[in-house]
């Protein structure tokens, strides 16, 4: 990484939900603020700014990561996916998002983006999770509304549907 000046703005370029984006930021700017205020991608939420609640989770180079613990400059050159990139088209939802809707797996929706991003990554690598493993995995996300029951149900349902879809394909 090149040496940066603390006071100067630096140009940051990365792929966001399949499209190249670029904007300037100071080295100290958090990736959450950069996404939300500089790129207007407000679907990524900030719940604690110390990496515990998981609301800001996004996908960086195929791996779930806490955007609140990442500097914008660290994202330069990365391939990033956020909640805005999950739905296949406006007005439509992904299999996982649909399952959340069916199971009432969200109430206020504030923690939901991070949970969806984590699960998207997890189900891609682990298409047949059992409930205990899923609960353990989602232990990195805080939800205050649902009590998690419907989130787990939605994730299991989505995993099954994704498996069926892959079988048919």
């Amino acid at each position: 990484m090149p040496r940066m000046s603390a006071d100067a703005n630096h140009r940051i370029r990365f792929k966001l939900n399949g499209r190249m984006v670029e904007a300037d930021a100071e080295p100290r700017m958090l990736l959450t603020d950069f996404l939300r205020y500089n790129l207007a991608m407000t679907g990524t939420h900030v719940g604690c700014e110390h990496g515990v609640c998981g609301a800001c989770t996004i996908e960086i180079d195929g791996v779930p990561a806490r955007a609140c613990l990442t500097l914008a400059v660290q994202a330069d050159g990365a391939d990033i996916r956020t909640i805005e990139g999950l739905a296949p088209a406006p007005g439509r939802l992904s299999v996982l998002q649909e399952a959340f809707r069916r199971h009432h797996a969200l109430q206020c929706g504030f923690c939901t983006a991070g949970i969806l991003l984590s699960l998207e990554c997890y189900l891609r690598d682990n298409p047949s999770p059992d409930e205990a493993t899923l609960r353990d995995y989602l232990g990195g996300h805080l939800c205050r509304c649902t009590g998690y029951v419907t989130i787990i149900a939605a994730a299991l349902d989505a995993a099954e549907r994704l498996r069926d879809a892959n079988k048919d394909a």
Binding site: T42, G43, T44, F100
Partner: peptide
Amino acid sequence: RSVERIEDLTLLAGRGRYIDD
């Protein structure tokens, strides 16, 4: 009836309008 929530299409797509949005 447990109809699907009107709110959820927006919230699940990351298009909610919370105060900081």
